[in-house]
């Protein structure tokens, strides 16, 4: 579960900022240091015939040298927080429970995937080229992992806003479950002296 969470969290902001990822598609990544906004997520579990919906706020802080901090604050249906940084992940529930796991505790396989996704998070073109095939699909993009074993999804569809940031995305998993995310009120800013550059543990 933590593994999936990490993959998801590491991947999502990448798409939010991604503009171009292959030679045949226009791709101009937005340069940002600190990106924040609101999200709405829904995940359809076909086997159970249910749809899980959450919403809240997120923030991505780019630290340089390929390092990032991701805050994912679920506000509905029940508040909980997930924070991801190069050191590991911190999960905090509304009831006060807090779990902190170092990256190395999560597993080697996940660690390698994280490395690749952190590359994307930093909008490093080489890493994007290495991991995904990016094609135009309608008004958006279709990203297909080059190595399907490395990712828990088969494809990702992205729709960009006028600034070039992702406003909607659909992840299709290997069992055909879908995860839909939409982002609003996106705001880019510079890192300030008070910006938290690590998860609170």
């Amino acid at each position: 579960m933590i593994r999936a969470l990490l993959l998801f969290l590491a991947g999502t902001p990448v798409f939010a900022a991604m503009q171009e990822a292959s030679t045949d598609v226009a791709f101009k990544p937005a340069v940002f240091e600190d990106l924040q906004g609101e999200f709405r997520q829904s995940k359809a579990l076909k086997a159970l015939d249910v749809e899980i919906k959450t919403e809240g706020r997120f923030r991505v802080i780019r630290l340089g040298s390929g390092k990032h901090v991701v805050h994912w604050r679920i506000e509905k249906p029940k508040p909980s927080t997930v924070c991801l940084d190069p050191e590991g992940i911190v999960l905090e529930s509304a009831t006060g429970g807090k779990k902190s796991l170092r990256m190395a505790e999560i597993g080697r396989e996940v660690g390698e995937q994280m490395g690749s996704l952190f590359g994307l998070l930093g909008l490093e073109p080489d890493q994007v080229q290495k991991d995904f095939q990016v094609r135009k699909k309608g008004a958006g993009f279709l990203l297909t992992p080059k190595d399907s074993e490395k990712f828990f999804f088969e494809t990702v569809e992205l729709e960009l806003d006028s600034v070039g940031l992702v406003k909607r995305m659909i992840l299709t998993e290997k069992n055909k479950d879908e995860m839909r995310l939409s982002f609003v009120k996106l705001k880019m800013q510079k890192i300030g002296p008070k910006t938290e550059t690590a998860c609170a543990r």
């Binding site: 579960m1 593994r3 999936a4 969470l5 993959l7 998801f8 969290l9 997520q41 829904s42 995940k43 579990l45 899980i52 959450t54 679920i74 249906p77 029940k78 508040p79 909980s80 999960l91 529930s93 509304a94 009831t95 429970g97 828990f152 999804f153 998993e173 290997k174 069992n175 479950d177 995860m179």
Partner: peptide, 28 residues
């Protein structure tokens, strides 16, 4: 009584579970 909130909160975590984590998905 806090159990109710904790279970609802767990729903958020369930939304992150990918198809490759069936074992953990079932356990959760």
């Amino acid at each position: 009584p806090s159990v109710v909130g904790a279970v609802e909160g767990a729903l958020g975590e369930m939304s992150f579970l990918g198809s490759g984590q069936k074992e953990i998905f079932d356990l959760k």
